[in-house]
Amino acid sequence: MASIKISSVRKVYPGNVEAISDLNLDISDGELVVLVGPSGCGKSTLLRMIAGLESITAGEVRIGDKVVNKLEPAERDIAMVFQNYALYPHMSVRQNLEYGLKNRRTPKAEIEQRVNEAARILEITRFLDRKPRQLSGGQRQRVAMGRAIVRQPKAFLFDEPLSNLDAKLRGQMRIEIKRLQRSLKTTSVYVTHDQLEAMTLADRLVVMNAGRIEQVGKPVDLFERPASLFVAGFIGSPPMNIFELATLRQLPGTTLPASIPAKADLVGIRPEALRLEEPAEPFIALEGTVELIEPVGGESHVYVNLNGIETLATVVVQGRLAEGEGSHIKLFMPASALHSFVSETGQRVE
């Protein structure tokens, strides 16, 4: 087990394409850090640089107290779970688990004991003598996890490990990964583009965009206080509603709450924070017609065509909305639920 320290790391691909620019990140011992961002944001590249599968153009990666820039993947003592599992198809599950230990000349008895232990934890003992192709997606995923944990490495690296599973299994495996990581307390870096996965798994969440870190923090903090428009839009589902203050000012009979900073020209509000009844605090009122209602189990997503505003507003309503599609509706934005941004820099202002 070890911490991972990434200092001023850059990655430039041939043709001067900068995938990662001057990135700093400290991951402490035993922590599960999730890297999340849209495709092409550099999150997988960063993970592969930690693993040693991708060279580091500039900067320094430390695992424990050792600089690993020049080390082969095998010498970094990490384990990786791949998106397509990357199980060796010609080997049985047992051989798959043994492979890394055998390469490291672990004594036979210890290999046996560790493999059996890992198989027991992941409940794959029954499949030990099968070939990967005889397993279902979820079972393969477990074997891939098993191959990582038998090695008892300093760190686990996960590269979108659940994206090939169906939604139900994904939810299940997500919980198992979290439980496993908690009990093993192994430092983990987990890459995903799924923000739900990111929110639920992470001790600390790293939102990346265009090769840079947008914000690092606890998932709840990122949700409640997004540092930029990008994070505000990326974290949370459905995404935050963003309105131009200039447009809101022109709405008839609207006074903006005094709590909005003078520098701000955009405000955002979570779909869950929009009210149907007048709140006790200062607010901005909106009017519009219900365009579409999506019933999503216990709650409903309501899309409202607001008067005087071009974009549709999204409202999350608990249970069912009394009004039907096409009916007139009033919405209230409580001042305390507003997030203010400057459009030019994309940053949050208080």
Binding site: G52, L53, F82, N84, A86, Y88, Y99
Partner: peptide, 13 residues
């Protein structure tokens, strides 16, 4: 798949 070779290199081969 390239990932097999990568997995093996992480596995110390």
């Amino acid at each position: 798949p390239a990932s097999l070779s990568e997995a093996a290199s992480i596995d110390g081969a």
